[in-house]
């Protein structure tokens, strides 16, 4: 499920023979043969929503193979193949909430990687809430469904962001929740980029080591 079959990272070189500049999340999972950790999940969410927001993307995340972690810590969606996601009225335009839902599901699967069907990972409540809201699986309490309403506010003045959330409607909402997870919200872009940069670097290091062993 989720396209989590064997990945083939190939060599540490890119198509032109130079060093690789990006790894898919699927490659990362397969190389480590273990799930991502919570901090990496927060970071991939933040970084991916940042690039989706900038690109105004309209395709869903179908598997971990679609998520690219770049050397510089950026996280993007892989370009769509010509016939990808063409089943919805012959086009690939999805709403922002549908794309966020698909991202939440794939991030959860990355956290759940390798676990048996009858096992469940114990997530920290904030991360579980983020995924619940992204995947639209959160139980509505019926009393306050006004959404996140983060439209024009700065990232730095959302000290009580976590308490207000009842729905996520935009990439910005996800990013604000991820930022609110940190002690200093204004540090979110720098911090999460560093986490993703380290994820790339450590995975490449492991890949190089395993290649030498082989």
């Amino acid at each position: 499920a989720g396209g989590e079959g064997p990945a083939e990272p190939g060599t540490a070189s890119g198509a032109a023979g130079g060093p690789r500049d990006a790894l898919s999340l699927r490659e990362i999972l397969c190389l480590y043969n273990q799930p991502i950790n919570e901090e990496q999940a927060w970071a991939v969410c933040f970084q991916c929503c940042g690039s989706l927001r900038a690109a105004a993307a309209r395709r869903r995340v179908r598997s971990a193979a679609d998520i690219r972690v770049w050397r510089d810590g950026a996280v993007t969606l892989a370009p769509a193949a010509a016939d990808d996601d063409a089943g919805k009225l012959g086009c690939s335009h999805y709403t922002e909430t549908e794309i966020i839902e698909s991202l939440g599901i794939i991030i959860y699967k990355a956290l759940d990687y390798g676990l048996k069907e009858n096992e469940e990972r114990e997530l920290s409540p904030p991360l579980e809430q983020l995924i619940d809201l992204m995947a639209n699986t959160a139980e509505a309490d019926g009393s306050n469904d006004e959404g996140y309403e983060a439209a024009d506010e700065g990232l730095e003045d959302e000290g009580d962001a976590k308490r207000k959330v009842s729905a996520i409607r935009s990439y910005r909402d996800v990013m604000k929740l991820c930022a609110a997870h940190l002690p200093a919200e204004s540090e979110a872009p720098k911090h999460y980029q560093a986490v993703c940069r380290a994820l790339f670097a450590e995975t490449m290091e492991l890949h190089t080591f395993l290649t030498k062993i082989k």
């Binding site: 799930p35 990496q40 839902e101 096992e119 469940e120 699986t137």
Partner: peptide, 24 residues
Amino acid sequence: KGKSLYKIKPRHDSGIKAKISMKT
């Protein structure tokens, strides 16, 4: 470095794993 420590519990019908599974 590179370790991910986490607790595993039995899957629960009302847990997030079940809810995510229903979506896929």
